[in-house]
Each structure stands twice: as C-alpha cells, then as structure tokens.
Design a protein around this nucleic acid. Sequence first.
RNA 1: GAUCGCUUAGCUCAGCCGGUAGAGCAACUGACUUUUAAUCAGUAGGUCGAGGGUUCGAAUCCCUCAGCGAUCACCA
Length: 545
Amino acid sequence: MTQNIPAEIAPEIAIKNRTWAFEEAKAVVKRLRAIGRGQVQTPEKGYVLFETGYGPSGLPHIGTFAEVCRTAMVQQAFEALHPEIPTKMICFSDDMDGLRKVPTNVPQQEMLAEHLGQPLSLVPNPFGTDHPSYAHHNNAALCEFLDNAGFKYEFKSASECYKSGEFDETLLLMLKHHDDIKHAVLPILGEERAASYSPFLPISPSTGAVLQVPILEVNNKNDTIRFEDVDGTIITQKVTGGKVKAQWRADWALRWHALDVDYEMSGKDLKSSADISKKILKILGKPNTAGFHYEMFLDENGEKISKSKGNGLSLEEWLTYAPQESLAYYLFQRPTSAKKLYFDIIPKAVDEYITFAEKLNEQEPAKKLDNPTWYIHHGEVPTTQHTPISFALLLNLVNAANTDDAATLWGFIQQYAPEATPENAPFLDRLVGYAIQYYKDFVLPEKSYRAADDRERTALSALADTLDSMESGLTAEDYMTAVFAAGKENGYEKDELRTWFQALYQILLGQDQGPRFGSFIALYGADKTVTLIRDALDNKLEKSA
RNA sequence: GAUCGCUUAGCUCAGCCGGUAGAGCAACUGACUUUUAAUCAGUAGGUCGAGGGUUCGAAUCCCUCAGCGAUCACCA
C-alpha cells in the first residue's frame, strides 16, 4: 500500500526541508491535523490518500505522467514526515464521462460517431485490442505505462465506483444539497450554461447516453431526480446505482468526499474548477483536500503544447531519446513555473539527473532531500544507475563514431572509460540505446555521401588493398599509419593531408567530420572498413544514405 | 475581465525562509592526438526588467510600473 520506505531520514530533518514536495506534504499534515483536532494521525480509512485524475478520452500523455510522478514525490515527502502513517496513491479514471466528440486520430470514426454521448466505458473498442471498450483500452494503456515506470498505485474506474454503489452515499448527500451546490457553480459559468446547469447528469434510460439536461425536480425522499429524456419522455430516476453521473466539478468533489481524498494536484487550467470543487466539498461537510496547481507545458516558442497541433515534445518522444528517470528529474523542477518542452532540453536533463544520482547516496540526510533523485529512487539510487560518462559525451560519440551498432559504440566508450561494460553499467547501456536512436533519427538523415574523384579513388583503393592485407586486431596507430601512407603515396602532399581526411569522411561517412580514423578502423573492423571503401567506390553508399 | 507565471552572463536557465551572483552551451587560451571533431585544464563575460520601500545588508521580502506569456470565462 505504502509507496516505498524512504531511506532513513529523521522526521525532524525532513520537516525543515523547503522543496515544493515537502511544502505540499506539510499541507497534507495540516489537513490531518485539522481533522484530528490537533493530532496528526492515520485517517479512519487507514491510510493517507493521494489521488491523480485521468481522462480516458485519449491516451495517457506527458501531463498524465507529470501528475502521477509529482504526486508520488509529494507522497514520498509525506512518508518522510510521518513514516508511521500508511499512504496510498489512486489513479482515478473518469471512464463514465460521455464521448463528446470523435477524436480524429483513432480508427473506426463512423462507428464511434454512432456512440456519441455514451459513457466511454460503454463505447465499443475501435482499436482491435482485447479490451471491451474504448475506455478500457485507454485505461489499460495508462496502467501499462505506470507499471513500466515503476509507480505503486491503485487503479480506480469511475464507472465501477458508480455502479458498485461506492459513490451512493455521497450522491445522496449531493441530492440533499442540490441547490447549494448548483449555486456554488453558477458564478463561473457563462449565461447559457448557467441556465441548464445541474451537478447531476442522468443516464438516459432509452439510449444509455450521459445527458446534459436541466433537472426539473429533486426528490430527497425517494432519492430521485426528474428530467426529460432524449425522446421527450419525462423520467423520474434514482441518483444511485450508476444511473446518474456527477457533472464536471461536482464530480471532483464527489470523489474527494466519497474516497476521502487527502491530496490531489491539478493544472492551473483547472484552478477555477478546483476552487468550485472545494466549495462543494465544504457544502458536503468535509475539510479541504490539499493540493496545488502546476503550470502548463509549453513548446520551444512558449506556446501551449497541444496534441492536435503536434508542437512541443510528447511523452513518447522524450522516452524515445532518453530514460524515464530524466523526465522525472525534469518534472521535479519548479512545477509552478511553465516548462518549455522541446528536444534540446533532454540531454541536459539526462546529465543533471546523472550528476544528482551520482551524489545522492553519499550526501548528508538534509541534503538528500534537496536532491531530485531522492524522490525518483525512493531515497537511494541503485548502483546500476552509475555511468562514468555523460549523455552529452555519448551523443557526440555516436555522432563521431558513425555507427548504429551498440557494440561498436561501446568500443568508443571504453576509450574514455576502460572499465565500463554493458554488464557493469546497465544504465549507460540504456543510454547507448537512446543515443543510437538519436543517431538514427537525427544524424543519419543528414548524411550526404559524395562520389570520389580520380585521385581519391586511387588513394582509397590503395587503402583498401593495404587494409585487406593487414592482419586483424592491430592497434589504432598501425591503421593510422596505413591511412597516412595511402594518402602520401597517392598524390597528397604533406600540407594536403587534411583534405585527404576530409575526403574520407565525406565519401565514406557522408559527413564533414568524423572520428580519428585509425581508431575508427580498429573499432569498426579492418575488414568492414574495406567493404565500406569498396562500396563507396562502387557508388553504393549514396543509395543507402 | 479574472487568475497566474516569467523578466539574472551572447543563448537556455538555476539560485528566492535576505548576507555583495552560478551551471550548461557559445567565445577565447592552453594541453593532448601523425587530420578535424571529441576530450581535459583554464580565461573572460552580469549595476540580477524599471522605480520606490523594509533592513546593518535584497536577485532574494513588500509596493508601484513596464514588457512578454499562459490559463479560465464552451467542454472535460
């Protein structure tokens, strides 16, 4: 249930920490103290609850990850303050929400259009996966993602909460305070919406759709509401048992109340909604849930990242080029100021993560709490995270080494860190994979091979012949000598040798710069270099570029 | 209109319970390599948006202003 056991940090030390995560955790403590009349103790439900919200109308995105990740950080800080109190994180999916519009990026558009208005958990699955519904598919994606990232959480489905009756008690309470709740929400609504607003959205008995209709009458004796169904029939329906869903904002308060949520953060775009939800929670008679509002993610030009525009950097993109830990590190930084998300920040984030990860285990307890990796690795960085070289160096290396082969790249790495191997530095090995991906996507497409002129052809074939006749396994210096000899003996004067090397890069590697050529041959292999040269002379490289 | 954020070295940003500024990149110098790049060592570079206040002392707290930007006001 508890997220983890932070490495021994005395609560007296923890309470002095001022990072945002601890400030948030202290807000949770304050809430507990209010509930316990001055005593900080385990809530009646048996644990302190941290909630995150997810809308399964789309796949999990970077905002989803950010919210779970940061909530886990607050949770960990709380555990350091009160190790004796159990905690739990719930990832709540609002899969009872109606399908408002058909997303343009999913299959079976027409089929989905027929199900507009239906709860997402009843809309058929258009993806062809095993899951029974649209929402189930997305929920599974969320869980898979969170599991892979190593989060400890409990998944909760809105549809199940409504149907099972878990929300009934609170729904009845909301029915009792129907008008108060309505008036709490009205001030922030536009005129048009205000006219028909109700905290309740009945489920149509004829179509199953989530209806956004005026509530004609509230009956607290029978636990019912009256409304007009899509076909014009006036219906009287219980608010319990999954026949009614709470409207946005009221829905939030409902969850906080019914599950007794102690902490939930949200984006600043939801600030006004959260404020209303707090008012509703108060009407329902519970103390405030703790939580703050994090800033939005922007793109390189400071504009809001939107999935439809495709600007900025997506979660998938980050995780294609860098480890999840580096993103978590990035997310730890000042959540209340807007973050620009674009490619260039990734290498820096990775290297700063590495720097902090290398330091954590030796730091004084008080210092540990200022180290972002304390939150990412639950107090102690595993030794497997050690890497002797930086990601920036690795990216330069993969560029220079001109290879998408991990083994070759490791050869270059060992020039810098002779003792490192994929086995004893698994994190570095992961970084190698990311660097190669980067090479494939950004370096390779930029390559432009040119054909050799006559002098170059002569020198290159001489080099190929020499290499062919050399024994394998010679040193970089031996190969270097051969390269120089091939140049000198085939028309390159001493002061022209630079152009000879440049020719090698342009003709063989498709770029203006490259690695030290002797080392390149030693690592790439003399025989493969011969093949490379002969392919170049046959003009085969241009096609593969 | 309401709410919030940002403004610190050429660039991107960190520092913010007050004690005369830091990093990365870029620049420059040097070392090392029988090419370049890389690597390593070092140097230089800022009246911390403007004005005022509190203080022995403010990039850091308070007020005013300016510029830029975001979010909300339809849906979640």
